[in-house]
């Protein structure tokens, strides 16, 4: 039982680290990468939590989150590409 707690904590720490990277940037693609990492770690965390608190239905949430994460990242990238093509000149922040 306690093993799940250790793994969940490790994932949580990494999510915080990813969040720090997302806030620090420096480029917008760094932020997208960090958010993607955050998202996949959320799916992982949800599956670990399913076992930690003994509720297997959390696995369904994990799958749904993994799906939403991928679609969300692709949508954000599409939006960024649209915007940077309108701005013409590439920015490096």
């Amino acid at each position: 039982m306690s093993m799940y707690l250790v793994v969940a904590l490790a994932i949580l720490v990494t999510m915080v680290l990813a969040l720090v990277r997302a806030l620090r940037g420096p480029t917008r693609y760094d932020r997208v990468l960090a958010v993607n990492m955050f998202g996949t770690k959320t799916a992982l965390l949800l599956s670990v939590i399913a076992y930690l608190i003994g509720r297997p239905d959390f696995l369904d949430l994990a799958l749904a989150y993994a799906l939403i994460n991928l679609v969300g990242i692709l949508a954000v990238l599409e939006f960024l590409q649209e915007r940077s093509s309108r701005e013409q000149e590439p920015r490096h922040d």
């Binding site: 693609y29 997208v32 990468l33 993607n36 994460n69 991928l70 990242i73 960024l80 590439p90 490096h92």
Partner: peptide, 14 residues
């Protein structure tokens, strides 16, 4: 997802 992020960065001129 990795490819999409990397390729978008590349396309943006980074």
């Amino acid at each position: 997802a990795s490819y999409a992020v990397a390729n978008a960065a590349l396309q943006s001129g980074m």
